[in-house]
Design a protein around this nucleic acid. Structure first.
Lengths: 344, 344
DNA sequence: CTGTTAGCGCTTTCAT
DNA sequence: ATGAAAGCGCTAACAG
């Protein structure tokens, strides 16, 4: 028994006593052009040999690889995973398999992954960038490979960016906080350089908190050494005023929850709301209010967009780029205790 | 500018005024056999054309696809993701890319994915099974494709199963609980049929809890309708005796944490320990004790094992199959309050 | 060192 | 309705 031996078209053809062409037709979209008799013979032979068409070889000729590629900045981030899941489901629905590369936020790894995805002849690329691989993406786009960016722009790249409606998200958060009676809010985000979504959120926060008449402060580090004193100062400076913290993403929510606990600040008394819904947000008493991202919709939109580019050059502008979040109110933005449970 | 046009070996050869072979050599492991002058010419031509070798075509001849395939039962489970990450890192280290398929615990999807992974000519398969795709795996193995199972056996398949040392994990949990003063423990697991790891853990629990002289009870459902009354009854029946709950995996920990909160049972007073470390375990007061799985080690072992099978038929039995967990003690197994902080 | 010549497994005209 | 033959982009002997 030889080591790695998969049956080939030819072997099937021989066993079925016919030609390569017919077997090929049998496994392609032209099966109906074969006589029932031949079909039966081929089926039998193929089954007997456990034949599986070799997609690599198929891709080589004309057929295309039926592969989509995806680059993720951090696969251990639940948000990223949710997006991957969305993309994968959508890809499958269209008959594509997905090859996922995780860059662990390493720009050089990102470059290498990008190169190898191209090398694998993927027919489309979904990129959640860690760094700013402009050059590579530029040449990739020029080569005609459909490209979609998730969540983050990359330099001047003119590919569509699909993701959360960041402005809406900030507005919803701020309105909620304001409506719940908080008058002053600390915005917490990772360093916003290099990530357009972070910039958009931050900027909108600055505009809107002002126009809503909310006092505001900003923290752009999640390091405990910075975050803990920042939170403490924020609360002290605003004694008597109902304060809240708005976390720009799941990581920020995690970090700030730790800070609250470290400082023994009562969650809710000082409000806490975060973008990104996480398993545990309902578990940390009294429950953390979140804005959930519609990850499946985003993933699906990404794939739809890619595939549209493949087709005859439809304008393809019908794909939604900015997806609205869903507010999940919990105790962490309940200023007055368990009353007023029915906030809008 | 034609749509999807990647440069080919031949074009590079033409531009560089040389032959296919030389260009091929340049991109293969024999670059050093080319004169510096030729190398320079080729490099220049390749750069100018943005040439990327086509891995599909390469794989077709002899080279192999340099692809590993992985099947995951539930990609949204943090444990699975951690394993994927481990496998991916290890694969990359050996020069392989990883194509990940998520089955969403759907056996029929699992079948289809398995087939397409084979079709993509992956050189090895890491499978975290959802169902029991024995037949397919059987024929896949017979075809000579290296196969490794993660965490769960599949029927009679004789592939190695790599994962946690389940018996050790249960022993560690029970010893810890016992040492902390708990005398009676409820074991919570999802339905153990179909998943060998669950069976092993459950069985070991039954043996060891008995031999340690601990009272025990078992719950094999995470549904609130069953779990809440079960937990309540368990506590009531053992009033006066220090009770604890042992969760067989992350899902169980999540579910039971909800139950504790629902019933307003104080975590710690009734102990709580779970297999699988999760982000939020330190956040739910007073912190939930866990046994962390060494996911990177498991992923790495899986890849190592696959690759060993590829090589000359070394016995390859040196790969570790059962990996020890790491105990992370927290407040949830602190029976007496914040004293005795230095448990072993 | 470099080029020539066969294919790899499959699809696809173009005949029959 | 079926088959023969010509590649797809690349690697791998085998000459020079």
């Amino acid at each position: 028994m030889p080591p790695t031996t998969r049956a080939t078209l030819i072997e099937v053809a021989n066993v079925a006593n016919t030609s390569k062409t017919s077997v090929s037709r049998y496994f392609g979209p032209e099966r109906h052009k074969l006589s029932p008799a031949l079909q039966a013979r081929i089926k039998q032979a193929a089954d007997a040999l456990h034949y599986q068409p070799n997609l690599m070889a198929r891709g080589l000729k004309g057929g295309g690889s039926r592969l989509l590629g995806m680059l993720v900045a951090d696969i251990r981030n639940p948000f990223s995973v949710a997006i991957v899941h969305g993309v994968e489901v959508a890809a499958r629905k269209h008959g594509y398999a997905l090859i996922v590369c995780n860059t662990d936020n390493d720009p050089s790894l990102e470059q290498r992954h990008l190169a190898s995805l191209a090398a694998y002849q993927v027919e489309g690329l979904v990129v959640n960038a860690a760094g700013q691989p402009q050059q590579l993406l530029q040449t990739i786009m020029r080569s005609g490979l459909p490209l979609v960016l998730i969540d983050r722009e990359v330099g001047e790249i003119s590919a569509p960016v699909i993701g959360l409606d960041n402005e809406l998200a900030i507005d919803m958060a701020l309105n909620h906080l304001s409506h719940q009676g908080y008058r002053c809010v600390l915005y917490v985000s990772e360093a916003p350089e290099q990530a357009s979504a972070r910039q958009e959120r931050l900027q909108r926060f600055q505009q809107q908190s002002a126009s809503l008449g909310l006092d505001n402060a900003i923290l752009t580090s999640l390091e405990e050494q910075e975050a803990i004193p920042a939170l403490r100062d924020f609360i002290q400076k605003n004694q008597g005023v109902p304060c809240a913290v708005l976390c720009a993403n799941g990581n920020a929510t995690l970090a700030m929850t730790r800070c609250f606990q470290h400082l023994e600040v009562a969650i809710g008394e000082v409000g806490l709301i975060g973008i990104d819904e996480l398993d545990w947000c309902e578990l940390v008493p009294p429950g953390i209010t979140t804005l959930a991202q519609p990850t499946d919709a985003i993933g699906s939109a990404a794939v739809t967009y890619l595939l549209l580019q493949t087709l005859p050059s439809k304008a393809a502008k019908e794909v939604q780029h900015h997806h609205p979040p869903v507010l999940i109110p919990r105790g962490s933005t309940q200023l007055i205790g368990p009353s007023a449970h029915l906030s809008p």
